[in-house]
């Protein structure tokens, strides 16, 4: 039984698919609570600042990306809370899970090919390798 589940989200469709699975898992367990960790990749911050007129708009856009994820949990009546953090996605997810004693990490897979993975690096790979708890990577 997992009572504290971490959903790692990055605002992509993959994260929504992962949220759907996390909601199914959590709803089958009594007292399970899901912590949604939205990781802002520092390499994307320049782009976000550039494409927003001010700081409020950046935050608004981030919260907007979380709406389809929240819907998955509301749909299944699973309690959840949201944390937004800036940092290198892999280590940020691993450290957060450890610090907050989370028992299961659920995350999406970007489905990169071999070359992309070589150049960009796979976040899910890093998390699976370093996490202290079980990890579910949703394809």
């Amino acid at each position: 039984m997992y009572s504290r589940i971490l959903l790692a989200a990055d605002g992509s469709d993959n994260a929504v698919r992962a949220a759907k699975e996390a909601a199914i898992i959590a709803s089958s367990m009594p007292d399970a609570i899901v912590e949604i960790l939205f990781v802002v990749d520092p390499s994307k911050v320049k782009e976000e600042v550039l494409h927003s007129q001010n700081h409020n708009e950046i935050e608004f856009k981030r919260k907007q990306k979380l709406i389809p994820i929240q819907e998955q949990f509301e749909h299944k009546s699973v309690p959840y809370q949201i944390t937004i953090k800036t940092g290198d996605p892999g280590p940020t997810i691993v450290d957060y899970a450890k610090q907050h004693h989370l028992e299961l990490i659920v995350m999406g897979s970007r489905g990169l090919n071999a070359l992309q993975e070589f150049v960009l690096g796979s976040v899910s790979h890093k998390v699976v390798k370093r996490a202290h708890c079980p990890v579910i990577v949703v394809k």
């Binding site: 520092p42 911050v45 976000e48 600042v49 550039l50 700081h55 950046i58 800036t86």
Partner: peptide
């Protein structure tokens, strides 16, 4: 000022 906004956001 663009850079300052980026650093503001990165460091919160």
């Amino acid at each position: 000022l663009l850079t300052a906004s980026i650093v503001d956001d990165m460091t919160g």
